[in-house]
Amino acid sequence: MITTLAIMALGAIVLGAALGYASIRFRVEGDPLVEKIEAILPQTQCGQCGYPGCKPYAAAISSGEADINLCPPGGLDGVRKLADLLGREVKPLEAEEKPKQVAIIDERTCIGCTLCIQACPVDAIVGAAKQMHTIIEPLCTGCELCVKPCPVECITMQPITENLDNWKWKYPVIEIKRAA
């Protein structure tokens, strides 16, 4: 009886020590879940979720503070991926899903106030004070943050149309008429 207890106690001590050591030795810096969530988010840094960027939103999701359906640029597809990762229920998006957009500056109207340059979270606008500004289209994430600050309303959001570079083969659809 005593032997049994001793063996169990010894086992518990040894395993406890091993686990304790491992938790110190293999400690992970930072929260890996936040990084995984952030990798799914579209990195538009638009703040439409109510957080000042994708990383804060990822941290908020990870801590259970925010829901997973607050990211309109990520779309329903993003919600699905987050639900998959976190084992949560897929929910419809809070806001309306929009097609991918790009900001366009009307260069004739631009007065060169640099307000949009300061607003752009991803440095996609070039220009200088009292010089015309323009958007580097491939770098624009379509976050719309530059639209509001413009005092002359010369920035418009335009949906990205299909062109030969982003054209995709479509999912083969069998017409019902033909199949019937």
């Binding site: 579209p42 770098l139 995709k168 083969w169 479509k170």
Partner: peptide, 24 residues
């Protein structure tokens, strides 16, 4: 073909997102 072009598109989007994050 559909699968290939979807994979390419996602790759492009992922690269763009990574670049945007780095710039941010």
């Amino acid at each position: 073909r559909f699968a290939k072009s979807e994979i390419w598109a996602r790759e492009r989007e992922k690269n763009a997102a990574d670049a945007a994050k780095a710039r941010f």
